[in-house]
Design a protein around this nucleic acid. Structure first.
Length: 225
DNA sequence: GACCAGGCACATC
DNA sequence: GATGTGCATGGT
């Protein structure tokens, strides 16, 4: 009988072998990654790219400059990302926190415990668990496992989880069975997203998925948190 | 034209 | 505490 840890690592290897390294997160600076994390909420990355390109072209991919920008102009720039009024507001909330508390400099996070940083991010209206964790892992290299709808769908589709788990439960499945390894967490989440995009689509039923041969992970239904 | 996309806050029961 | 709804562009 394989342990949950062994099953998870088997999934990881299967995905990595078939899909290859994903080189996440697409973004040149921690700030760009954080902006992308907010803009990609329930939105395809191709749309986010257009919005970030607008910000770059305007020379505004900078916390202080964006913070000083007229909110309506910000909304116009991020329009291609969808939900643009909501996202402009959320970006503004993030910028206010970052500029007021950390002088707009994400380098200032160094030395701050991950747990405290997570709490502060979650206190920003518009930043939920996935966005906070994406920023922590991909922008700040903190060992936090990011889960999302793809993660839940891929795992459920292949019978690896027996029911719908909420965010903390799903996250706990990974973090309590894997060592806190930034590189592993980075690649694993990216691979699960790619598997979700390319194979485990909502419909039609996934086919050709690297995980089709897998069985059920026992004992994850009562994962606590 | 329907469906989907790397969520989140808020209203309502 | 659970469930429902608004938010919006752009690709398939």
């Amino acid at each position: 009988m394989k342990t949950t840890r062994e099953r998870l690592l088997e999934i990881y290897r299967l995905l990595l072998n078939s899909l290859g390294p994903q080189h996440w997160w697409p973004g040149e600076t921690p700030f760009e990654i954080a902006v992308g994390a907010i803009l990609t909420q329930n939105t395809s990355w191709s749309n986010v790219e257009k919005a970030i390109a607008n910000l770059k072209a305007a020379g505004l991919l900078d916390a202080s400059k964006l913070h000083a920008l007229d909110p309506e102009e910000l909304a116009t720039l991020v329009r291609p990302a969808g939900y643009f009024r909501v996202k402009a507001k959320r970006l503004g909330n993030f910028l206010t926190w970052l500029c007021d508390r950390y002088d707009g400099d994400m380098q200032s996070f160094e030395g701050i415990p991950t747990g405290r940083l997570r709490e502060e991010l979650l206190a920003v209206s518009g930043i939920g668990p996935e966005t906070a964790d994406s920023i922590l892992l991909y922008a700040l290299n903190r060992p936090v496992f990011v889960v999302d709808t793809y993660t839940a769908r891929v795992m459920a589709r292949h019978g690896l989880i027996g029911e719908e788990l909420d965010y903390p439960q799903l996250q706990d499945l990974f973090t309590s069975n894997l060592e806190p390894d930034v590189a592993l967490f980075n690649e694993f989440h990216a691979l699960l997203v790619m598997a979700g995009k390319n194979y485990c689509k909502p419909r039609p039923h996934c086919s050709g998925c690297p995980l089709e041969s897998l069985g059920v992970i026992p004992g994850v239904r009562n994962s606590t948190r």
